[in-house]
């Protein structure tokens, strides 16, 4: 099970990123557990300046944007 965190207080883009991750993970057959991190003190541990942030296996891989489906697939696959 791949641990993915979406960092963000619940903005529209945070929800969209979460949905994108679920969708892509389903499409490429990677089992993911998506965790929403909404507490600022927790979010800032990754030193993001823009939300949403995307964390895969404890590593920040994107911030302030929603990566394309292909990019999300590339980020999830090697990590699984």
């Amino acid at each position: 099970m791949l641990n993915v965190k979406v960092l963000g207080p619940g903005c529209a883009n945070c929800k969209r990123l979460e949905q994108a991750v679920q969708r892509v993970a389903g499409a490429i057959g990677v089992a993911v557990e998506v965790e929403k991190v909404t507490d600022y003190a927790e979010i800032m541990k990754w030193d993001v300046l823009q939300t949403p942030g995307l964390v895969v296996n404890g590593k920040l891989v994107a911030a302030g944007r929603i990566p394309s489906d292909e990019e999300i697939a590339r980020l999830l696959k090697p990590a699984a």
């Binding site: 963000g8 207080p9 903005c11 529209a12 883009n13 600022y40 979010i43 800032m44 030193d47 993001v48 300046l49 823009q50 939300t51 302030g64």
Partner: peptide
């Protein structure tokens, strides 16, 4: 700099830090 008010808090904390 691209800015969304939804990121105001992380930005503020990041700058202060």
């Amino acid at each position: 700099t691209p800015f969304c008010s939804c990121s105001a808090v992380p930005l503020f904390i990041g700058f202060v830090k």
